[in-house]
Design a protein around this nucleic acid. Structure first.
Length: 297
DNA sequence: CTCGGTCAAGGATAC
DNA sequence: GTATCCTTGACCGAG
């Protein structure tokens, strides 16, 4: 099964997300601030639902939500978004739709969520960010929050220890949703696997990140260990192509043929594949077209 | 209207 | 320490 992330180009404006800047917000009265934040949040939730419906119509049953649905979620104290009736209403519509259609959903915190930072305030902010995403997750029926290990300050060993310490500070609810993904610069598959095994959380295998960062380990050696971290749940992996070549860290617009074949080979019958390329759903549709062509020829 | 500098949030790197 | 870049999509002020 294939899925895509965040934006749906096909839906034009209703396939994207709006946000609010602090600069704009501070020019408004308290009342107008709440109005603006609410209008944006409800709009973003509505658009998320439109994308899910589009997915269903197109037989795409895996989707990753934008993490920016609630604007300035952990920054503004004046509006309790989770207590807003209209927000709750939109969330429950999303939750029902996801459950009825068995769509596999997930959320990624942004890059500034660094659980293993050496700066205590950064860890606190990261936990706040995860708490926001966890609350939203419970409202829309999401069970998977995918994060990276984070910083390497002080060396990888110490950084991993800090990650494990921060993990222990999280609520059980958040812990049960977290999955850890290998990255392309610092923490490779062989760094992430032991952390996942220690903490008992699933590992998201990103095959493009693996291509950018590995120490010569073979895919076949990793495969079963990764599957084991999912403890019977169906594993999920990420796929993208380098913009200018095999191990260019920048993501390309589409998935190229060789990368797709390699991912399919790794996935076998076991993994769902989340596409992470610039052209989102268009890349997924292109893969399908190519497969249809090769079947008929 | 379009364009391009800017934006809550962190980190890595070079000096 | 400080400056600068990484990186993403949308904002927003200038023209």
């Amino acid at each position: 099964m294939l899925g895509f992330a965040c934006i749906c180009n096909t839906l034009k404006d209703s396939g994207r997300f709006k946000t609010v800047t602090v600069k704009t917000l501070t020019k408004l009265s308290d009342e107008d601030q709440a109005k603006k934040l609410k209008a944006t949040a409800v709009d973003n939730l509505y658009n998320s639902l439109q994308i899910l419906k589009w997915c269903k119509e197109n037989d795409i049953l895996m989707y990753r939500f934008s993490s920016d649905i609630i604007p300035l979620a952990t920054y503004v104290e004046s509006w309790h978004w989770w207590e807003d009736g209209d927000v709750q209403n939109m969330c429950s519509k999303i939750k029902s739709f996801v459950e009825e259609n068995k769509i596999r959903i997930s959320l990624h915190p942004d890059q500034f969520c660094v659980l293993n930072s050496d700066k205590p305030h950064v860890v606190q902010n990261s936990i706040k960010h995860l708490e926001y995403l966890n609350t939203l997750s419970n409202m829309i029926g999401n069970k998977l929050l995918i994060i990276h290990t984070g910083s390497t300050v002080g060396g990888k060993e110490k950084a991993i220890q800090r990650f494990i310490e921060s993990f222990s500070l999280l609520s059980k609810d958040i812990q049960s949703k977290l999955a850890l993904e290998n990255d392309d610069k610092s923490f490779g598959a062989l760094d992430v696997l032991p952390i996942c095994e220690t903490l008992g959380i699933p590992m998201i295998f990103d095959i493009h990140h693996f291509n950018c960062l590995n120490t010569g380990e073979s895919l076949s050696d990793l495969r079963q260990r990764i599957i084991n971290t999912w403890k019977g749940r169906r594993p999920k992996m990420h796929l993208s192509s380098g913009k200018t070549g095999f191990n260019d860290r920048h993501h390309g617009d589409y998935i190229n043929e060789e990368d797709y074949r390699a991912a399919l080979k790794f996935a076998g019958e076991d993994f769902d594949i989340m596409l992470e390329c610039k052209q989102k759903e268009l890349a997924l549709l292109r893969i399908r077209e190519n497969e249809a062509c090769s079947h008929t020829s």
